[in-house]
Amino acid sequence: MQAPEIEVPIIGAKPAKDIGLSVSEGEYSLSFGIGELTGRVRGDTGMRSLLRQYLEPRVNEMLRVINQELLIPAQQRLQQMDKQGLVVIVDNLDRVDNRQKEGSKRTLPEYLFVDRGDQLRQLHCHVIYTIPLNLAFSNEFELLKNRLGDVKRLPMVPIQRQDGSDLATGMALLKQMVLARAFPDADATERLQGVEQIFEQPTMLERLCQISGGHSRNLLRILRRCLEEDDPPITHDCLERAIREHRDDLSLAITSDEWALIQEVTQQQKVSGEDGHHTLLRSLFVFEYDDPTEGRWFAVNPVLRETKKFRSLQAANHQTIP
Rank of each mutant, 00 (worst) to 15 (best):
P109D: 08
K17L: 11
N67V: 04
I234P: 00
V65H: 08
F141R: 07
A172I: 03
S251F: 05
C125Q: 01
N60D: 15
Q79F: 15
E306R: 12
K308E: 13
V127E: 00
G213N: 00
G103W: 13
M204F: 02
K175G: 06
E110L: 05
H318L: 14
P73Q: 08
R224E: 12
K308T: 14
E102R: 13
E274C: 06
C238M: 09
K105Y: 14
D166G: 10
L86Q: 02
S31E: 10
N139F: 11
V88W: 07
R225W: 07
L50S: 11
F298S: 01
K308W: 10
P184N: 05
L220K: 06
N218H: 12
P158S: 15
Q53N: 15
L280N: 02
R296C: 11
S22Q: 12
D231Q: 14
E228C: 05
L51V: 02
P322A: 08
L167G: 05
L219W: 02
A16C: 04
R161D: 13
D150W: 09
N67Q: 07
M1T: 09
Q267H: 09
K145E: 14
E36G: 12
D82C: 12
F137I: 02
L173C: 07
R221W: 10
V8I: 10
L250H: 01
D44R: 11
T279L: 14
H126R: 11
I198E: 00
A242D: 02
V88F: 08
E288H: 06
S24R: 15
Q100P: 04
T189Q: 14
N317P: 04
I262Q: 01
D257S: 07
I211Y: 02
L250R: 00
K152S: 13
M177Y: 13
L70D: 03
K270Y: 14
Q176C: 03
G85S: 08
Q75V: 12
I10P: 06
P158Y: 07
S312L: 12
V90Q: 06
E306I: 06
Y129R: 01
N67M: 05
M156A: 15
F310V: 03
K101N: 08
G149W: 02
